[in-house]
Design a protein around this nucleic acid. Sequence first.
DNA 1: GTCTATATAATGATAGAC
DNA 2: GTCTATCATTATATAGAC
Lengths: 216, 216
Amino acid sequence: MHKEPDTKTSYSAGELAILEAAETLFAQKGFAAVSMSAIASLANTSKPNIYHHFKNKNDLYLAVMTTAVRRTSTLLDKLEVSPGTFSERLTEFSAGQLDNILGHKRSTQLILRETLTEDSEHGQEITRLVMGEVFSRLVAMVHQGQQEGEFRQNIDPTLAAFLIVSANMFFFQAFPAMQHIPEVDFSDDASAYSKGIMDLLTNGMLQKGEINVAST
Amino acid sequence: MHKEPDTKTSYSAGELAILEAAETLFAQKGFAAVSMSAIASLANTSKPNIYHHFKNKNDLYLAVMTTAVRRTSTLLDKLEVSPGTFSERLTEFSAGQLDNILGHKRSTQLILRETLTEDSEHGQEITRLVMGEVFSRLVAMVHQGQQEGEFRQNIDPTLAAFLIVSANMFFFQAFPAMQHIPEVDFSDDASAYSKGIMDLLTNGMLQKGEINVAST
DNA sequence: GTCTATATAATGATAGAC
DNA sequence: GTCTATCATTATATAGAC
């Protein structure tokens, strides 16, 4: 049957074509800027056929968002982290998340777009759904690293996790623009980026061996 | 005269009301989701009156974006940084940028939204316009800090600047959503946040021998 | 399930009075 | 400069044939 996308978990070939076309366009232009005609055209079908499979435009959007969220969050669960120092584990996990983001650009774009729409709390809910798990695991890693003595005690694990996630998300979001700023010269290699930010986060910027100038 | 918003730098009271209403709605919902009627209604005027002052919807949007960009980037120039260690200067500058962002939420939202629209390279240009200067100054600070021996040589100043900017932008963008994740417990005080991330970036997460214990 | 054709509502934009 | 009234276009959504 059709018209219950919220609970639906498998789609026919035709429906998948519609969903993919819709996801592409919604990600590129946003909900309101995309017409059902445009979706039909990209999906190589007709407008009424879309309405046969999805109740209305909003339901189609919900179906797209649901599959996007499912896709990005399930891939995360599979991300096993090999043993090593906690710095290494964080680096690996961070690289995994960035890979996940870059491997699902359309979904990520959709979710970020939703974040900016303060229409309802719908966007916030989706953000939590997608990033809550990454966040929890990062916080847990940092916390454990503290307990085992690898990390300093007087840092907020939440803050550290937040920094890692923000670096990854912003890399995706702003890199195309930043790339053309003269000062920006680091490569767009995701794993190199992950290593770079984790090196900064673990070792810090200060010269080692120097006196750590007593902070304010 | 009217209908040349690109070069225009001062507006009448009526035009300002229209621009403000338009900025609010465009920031909340995005260009396509906002109707001229809605803008007219919020600005307490009529649709034809908007068309009297602005050539069309797209020109109105351009005028809104132009003033938004001008507003956020000029405030940055005024940000003087007091002397001190480079860690302290970076902290102050970062806090200044975050203040700037939080003080112009609508403008920031508009710009971030534009970043996500891969319609043209227009969004990228705006991003560079708004963030290029912040970026340059951050990179210069880090670089100078390296030359004067405060910071390690083997870090990429660009990467450090990127981390700071991303932390600030993402704080604005995702904090409302993240706030409700159980693990997130740090305050939403902007300057405390800036101090926190700069502490992490300068001192790093690793336990450094035994010298580093005295802090906050 | 998929189409052609169409109903209906809303949108961007204009004409013309004051 | 600001309005009422209106046009032309496009949008979502449906009816009904195959």
